[in-house]
Nucleic acid binder design. Structure first.
Lengths: 112, 112
DNA sequence: TATCGTTATGTTTTTCAAAATATAGCGATA
DNA sequence: TATCGCTATATTTTGAAAAACATAACGATA
């Protein structure tokens, strides 16, 4: 069967976008690099865009998702909270389940 | 639970985009109006964009999805083939199933 | 054979989002 | 107290997508 099904999912909280695929990969990059600027660079995002994303995430989330520090050793940095890590994990679970579900749904296109 | 989950799905055939939500609503509008230009107007699309969409759909599909006629009674028109109608129906089924599935998946966000 | 409302397409203009650039402020530490 | 690399934010520039505009072609039919 040469059909493919693709999807994009995102989660809103109080009608504000909380998480989507782009936001998730930014959070993962922060976890790996320990800094927002390095994270942005690593996934080819301008620092500014990355900053707005994190700002938007932290405003939509019930609890802080990152802790950002300005100045100090190394100039500062950014790291995920445990809460942030649990959000990533919940999103990844849903996304993966969704892919599997949709692949099954392609039977609706058999013979078409 | 004040979380909402949203999705966008689309179907590709031979790595070309065949159907997505925008394309589906254009096809439905053609079914209702009998003409591409009227359909475009009814869903606030420029004729040109609508034409490119239909062109792209018909190039990606195994069989023609619309029959377009130029000139003649009323200047011409556009109508769905039976094949086109069956594609719409298959897409709608998958999309609806997906929404239900994702709503269930929100349990992953309980307590978060 | 002139008319009409379409499809089909090219060209130009506008708009908006993204990227680039600039710069202020911060705090550990040497 | 000077330095450093980072966060935070404003301003300008660029580019790509969308909209707007223009026009050719078509075929039933009056």
């Amino acid at each position: 069967m040469s059909y493919k099904i693709k999807s994009r999912i995102w989660i809103e909280h109080d009608d504000k976008v909380l998480l989507g695929e782009g936001r998730i990969s930014l959070l993962k990059a922060i976890e790996e690099t320990g800094s927002l600027s390095k994270a942005a660079k690593s996934i080819n995002l301008s620092y500014k865009k990355a900053w707005h994303l994190i700002d938007s995430i932290n405003k939509a989330a019930k609890n802080p998702v990152t802790i950002n520090s300005i100045g100090g050793k190394g100039g500062g940095g950014s790291e995920l909270t445990d809460y942030g890590k649990s959000l990533i994990s919940a999103f990844d679970t849903i996304n993966k389940n969704c892919w599997e579900f949709l692949d099954d749904q392609l039977v609706n296109f058999q013979d078409l």
